[in-house]
């Protein structure tokens, strides 16, 4: 039944729209669509954004194992390409700091009336276009060091359950430390 639901184009698009709507609603209610909240996170003055990300990982990681083990959904692991992830990640971070939004919160901010976010979105489309046009020339750099769709338990040769326990406990400890220090 799920397969038929997933395959029908109109239903797929409506599902995406509703999931996005709830995502935007939550981001706004959490303060993550506000420029000042995001920049103050990068300046280590307000930890709202990391609190949201870490609690999403804790809840989602546990639920994800249940969903996958029940055979309801398939993992979607992005390939491990160290060089482009490090270089691209740092460029992304620089853009995050200068613009004051990341791609999802940027879209949310547009919805709340941020004009500079709208300009940032135009810049993002231009940046994506530049990458697409440069891709044939930097193809080697992007694809050569592909180590495959690795997960932490595979690399460390530890059971998934144990990895999950350690990662989630670590995130909970970090969040507790943030709270204790009133950050």
């Amino acid at each position: 039944m799920l397969d038929r639901f997933r395959e029908k184009r109109s239903l797929r698009l409506i599902t995406a729209l509703v999931v996005g709507l709830l995502f935007g609603f939550l981001l706004q209610k959490g303060g993550a669509t506000e420029y000042e909240v995001l920049v103050n996170q990068l300046l280590l003055r307000d930890f709202t954004v990391l609190k949201i990300i870490f609690s999403a990982i804790v809840v989602g990681s546990l639920g994800f194992q249940i969903v996958v083990r029940a055979g309801i959904a398939d993992p979607s692991i992005k390939p491990f390409k160290p060089k482009p992830i490090i270089v691209g990640g740092l460029i992304f971070g620089a853009g995050f700091a200068l613009l004051g939004y990341c791609p999802g919160t940027l879209a949310g901010a547009v919805g709340t009336g941020s004009i500079h976010a709208l300009l940032g979105a135009a810049g993002m489309v231009a940046g994506a276009s530049a990458f697409a046009n440069l891709y044939p020339r930097i193809n080697n750099f992007i694809e050569k060091g592909n180590r495959g769709r690795l997960t932490i338990p595979e690399v460390l040769k530890v059971e998934v359950g144990l990895t999950l326990l350690i990662v989630d406990l670590l995130l909970i400890v970090i969040m507790a430390l943030i709270e204790i220090n009133n950050l």
Binding site: G88, F92, G95, G127, A130, A132
Partner: peptide
């Protein structure tokens, strides 16, 4: 900033 964000996200 948006340009860097878009470029970096695609590379990463």
């Amino acid at each position: 900033g948006g340009f860097l964000l878009g470029f970096g996200a695609r590379m990463a």
